[in-house]
Structure formats: structure tokens, C-alpha cells
């Protein structure tokens, strides 16, 4: 607060007090029509805010919806691609099945060596006698790749049993036919007689 203002205060105080006590009730002159505050910019501002808000919200919502759809689409695409990768990986793993590799190797005429000579590089020495590989250490392939032998054995037995049954049935049929033929012959000879 300024020092200059201080002494003025007491002087003004009593003066105003007397004024209020002495003033009589009179009609106050109508307040001058204040210069009209321009109403239009305010209305425009508010409506712009409103419209802007609504439109903004709408655009925001729409874009959210859009991105939700896009997310779903991309998710699906990612899933499809991942599935494809998995399928290919699975195929690769199936090809790495030792049974398959052994079968391919056999097709190429490869065998498991029955023994190997050792080469000692630092000493420049060969240990053991190198000999060409033969088939003696190569185990046979599965009778059919992918099916365990026990299953094949069971199938073979079943097939044999079925064949035996069929043969027995055929034999019986043949016998019956022969018998019939015999009888026929007999009857025909009887007739001839």
C-alpha cells in the first residue's frame, strides 16, 4: 500500500458519512443504456463449442469403432498367419521324423557305418582301420513308415485269419460243388444206364 494514500483516508471518511446522512431519497436517474455487449460472438462461440464437441465426439467414436473393426480384422489376419506358420513348422517337423530321414537315406543308398576310424589331428594319426561301410549296422526301416510294427503285426494276423477263413469257405464251397458235380455225374450215368 502507498504511503501517500494513507493521510487521505481519514479526511474522506467523515465526509462520506455526512453525505449519506444528508442525502434524501430521490429518484435515481435511469442508468445510461450501457453500450450493448456484442452478443453474437458469444452465441457463435458457444454453439461452435457445442457443435464442435458433438462432432468431435462423433468423429472420435466413429474412429474408435473403425479401429475396433480394424483390430478384429488384423487379429484374424495375425491368427491366420500364425496358423499358417505353425502348419509349415509342423510339416517341417514331420519331415524331420527319423523314420522319414532313414527312409530317404536308404533311397539314396546310404548306410550306417559299422565302425569308424578316428583321426587325431594334432598328432596326425589315424586310429583304427578305416573300412568301407556295409549294411551290417543299418537297422531295417519300419515295414511301413509311420505305423508301429505291433499294429502291422496285428493287421497281418487278422488278414491271415481272414484269408484262412475265406480259403476254408472256398474249400467247403468247392467240395460242395464237386460233390454236386459228382452226384450230377452219377445221376447222369445212372440215367445213361
Amino acid at each position: 500500500m502507498s504511503i501517500a494514500a494513507a493521510p487521505q483516508a481519514p479526511a474522506r471518511g467523515p465526509e462520506r458519512a455526512t453525505e449519506t446522512t444528508q442525502t434524501r431519497l430521490t429518484a435515481v436517474p435511469a442508468p445510461l443504456p450501457s453500450p450493448m455487449a456484442p452478443r453474437l460472438p458469444f452465441v457463435v462461440l458457444v454453439s461452435m463449442l457445442l457443435v464442435g464437441g458433438v462432432v468431435g465426439l462423433l468423429v472420435f467414436n466413429t474412429s474408435m469403432q473403425q479401429s475396433a473393426f480394424q483390430e478384429a480384422r488384423l487379429q484374424e489376419q495375425a491368427t491366420t498367419l500364425a496358423a499358417r506358420e505353425q502348419a509349415l513348422d509342423g510339416e517341417l517337423k514331420k519331415m524331420e521324423n527319423p523314420h522319414k530321414i532313414a527312409a530317404k537315406a536308404k533311397e539314396l543308398g546310404m548306410v550306417v557305418p559299422q565302425n569308424a576310424a578316428m583321426l587325431r589331428v594334432p598328432e596326425a594319426k589315424v586310429e583304427g582301420e578305416p573300412a568301407p561301410a556295409d549294411r551290417s549296422a543299418t537297422p531295417p526301416l519300419h515295414p511301413k513308415v509311420g505305423k508301429p510294427y505291433s499294429v502291422l503285426l496285428a493287421e497281418k494276423k487278422a488278414a491271415e485269419a481272414a484269408a484262412a477263413k475265406k480259403k476254408a469257405a472256398e474249400d467247403a464251397k468247392k467240395k460242395a460243388e464237386e460233390k454236386a458235380a459228382d452226384e450230377e455225374q452219377r445221376t447222369s450215368t445212372d440215367e445213361a444206364r
Binding site: G146, K147, P148, Y149, S150, V151, L153
Partner: peptide, 12 residues
């Protein structure tokens, strides 16, 4: 041995 095929256990 004999064994089974893990891809088709029901066969054994």
C-alpha cells in the same frame, strides 16, 4: 518294443 504311435494311440 513293441510300442505305439503317439499320433494314433488307439491303434495299439
Amino acid at each position: 518294443y513293441p510300442t505305439f504311435d503317439a499320433r494314433d494311440p488307439a491303434a495299439s
